[in-house]
Design a protein around this nucleic acid. Sequence first.
DNA 1: TCAATAGTTTAGAATTATTCTAAACTGATA
DNA 2: TATCAGTTTAGAATAATTCTAAACTATTGA
Lengths: 131, 131
Amino acid sequence: MQRIKEILRSKNLRPTKQRVLIADHLFDGTDKHVTAESLFRELSSNKRDVSLATVYNTLHEFCKKELLNKITLDADKVYFDTNTSLHHHFFSEKDKILLDIKNEDVKISLMPKAPKGKKIKKVELVIHLED
Amino acid sequence: MQRIKEILRSKNLRPTKQRVLIADHLFDGTDKHVTAESLFRELSSNKRDVSLATVYNTLHEFCKKELLNKITLDADKVYFDTNTSLHHHFFSEKDKILLDIKNEDVKISLMPKAPKGKKIKKVELVIHLED
DNA sequence: TCAATAGTTTAGAATTATTCTAAACTGATA
DNA sequence: TATCAGTTTAGAATAATTCTAAACTATTGA
């Protein structure tokens, strides 16, 4: 709990009850892919002490502070990945499931140059799956 | 015009007035990235002979028949790409602009195996840009 | 040629994820 | 501990998309 508060403080985020609850749930050491909706459901299963609006706010704050990675593969389902290290994804549209691909399992040996005036911010490789 | 009708017929799509209008606009030889909204706006600038619902229906039909490629990078803007050949994209979130990357400008020299029971359907490399 | 019909289009309503609003609340600071 | 900027909240608003069911039309085969 103190660990969580430290993480938040180190990012200049006040460790409020809601943020601690959310961070505690997200950063338990296992990699997760959540949506605002799924997270809200999991958190409010017991007590209702976080609103959906706060879940949205918090996920976005965490992304800005690079505690999470936002992944949009499906217009009606935006994923947030607790694994912020360099890696890629498998995506099954049918199952709406995201799977991590370790960075060392992919090698991109030729990369195009960014257009003039732009820099490369992130390289996202998504391998779409089917049955 | 006959060419367009042939394309539609070859995909088992009745060449209705609306589909011909849309296909004629999309498949003029130049690669495009459209959204349902942008396409609707362009088509109905003169006369109003396609409804928005039909634009959505048609874009999805065309995707199913592999005349278009759907690209979702931003939850509130789904793109349809008239270039269905193997290629990748630059994406500027700020400008909401998609740019094609020629397939030969990228080389992926190591690819992970698909999980058991799944096949690789599509490999999508998106290079996110910033200023 | 034309009637039957399966496929298509449509306006407008419904849905759904997300964002907004503005009022209440709270952690941090002095 | 009072202050106040930052945060949370319910509920309304927004916006992209899908749905519905009635009207329309391309195709077919007699």
